[in-house]
């Protein structure tokens, strides 16, 4: 019998520890599948972050390091500069990348650092129990915005793709979502292209992935996927912001 679907070989087989309905699992799988398709598993170094996304370092069958909160792009810079012929990627959540690590991600893009960043945006801090992130939508209730995010009090959510695409050193910037099978396929293609950007030495590449956090959103997995379509995508439009030749 022919195998039509199997676990990507770039995963080490450890059971995912993400919550039920969390789409980190789908995203991690797309990253691994893209690495498989490009045949780079032996030459890839994964840089994990602090937060739920950091667990990727324990799931990849590649070399990996676990970074301090927000500092993955700086860690990746040190690794890539010492391993210019290897493929180095960071996998960061929105608290990590869009809050505590904004300086590092902006400056990595500014230097045109030849790394690939997978930015998982679920509009909340997942691991610490659902606090407000810079990406939390206006009106969204979290444990630190219990009455809903008030734009007058703490601003409107930050759009990282739009911000980073203004930087010359950024060569590939795209926002995708994993709320439907079609969008998952597009996400895989974007992640693969972000790796290709690095392999071809074009510059900094980032894929933002809108992701569901049913546990902290207080929704069922299905309702959480619906919320990505109804609330997140209208504020965080999907599409390519920057591409390379």
């Amino acid at each position: 019998m022919a195998i039509v679907y199997e676990r990507p070989k770039s995963l080490n087989g450890a059971p995912f520890t993400y919550c039920p309905g969390c789409t980190h699992g789908i995203i991690t799988q797309q990253v691994a599948a893209a690495i498989d398709e490009l045949g780079i598993v032996d030459d890839t170094i994964c840089v994990g972050c602090v937060g739920c996304g950091g667990y990727i370092a324990w799931f990849m069958d590649t070399d990996a390091i676990y970074s301090l909160h927000g500092r993955a792009p700086a860690n990746a810079t040190g690794i890539k500069r010492m391993n210019p012929d290897k493929v180095v990627f960071t996998y960061q959540g929105d608290g990590d990348l869009a809050s505590i690590g904004t300086a590092e991600i902006v400056q990595a893009a500014h230097r045109g650092e030849k790394i690939t960043t997978i930015f998982v945006n679920n509009a909340t801090y997942g691991m610490t129990g659902g606090q407000m992130a810079p990406t939390t939508l206006v009106g969204q209730k979290t444990t630190t915005s219990p009455y809903g995010r008030d734009a007058a009090h703490c601003g409107k959510p930050i759009r990282m793709c739009e911000l980073l695409s203004t930087i010359d050193g950024a060569a590939f910037i795209q926002r995708v979502a994993v709320n439907t099978p079609g969008n998952v396929r597009k996400a895989r293609a974007a992640i693969k292209r972000a790796f290709q950007c690095q392999i071809e030495g074009k510059g900094f590449a980032l894929v933002e992935v809108l992701s569901a956090c049913p546990t902290n959103w207080g929704k069922t997995p299905a309702a959480a996927l619906d919320w990505i379509a109804s609330d997140m995508i209208p504020y965080y439009p999907l599409g390519n912001f920057k591409d390379f030749q």
Binding site: V47, I65, S67, L68, R71, A74, N75, A76, T77, G78, I79, K80, R81, M82, N83, A103, E104, Q107, H110
Partner: peptide
């Protein structure tokens, strides 16, 4: 390799990455 970082914080994390790469 010399690289000026955006902060002392980032510089030290670059050091960590380079050290992790055996340098």
């Amino acid at each position: 390799l010399f690289l000026q970082a955006e902060s002392e914080l980032a510089a030290m994390n670059m050091v960590m990455g380079a050290s992790a790469s055996g340098a």
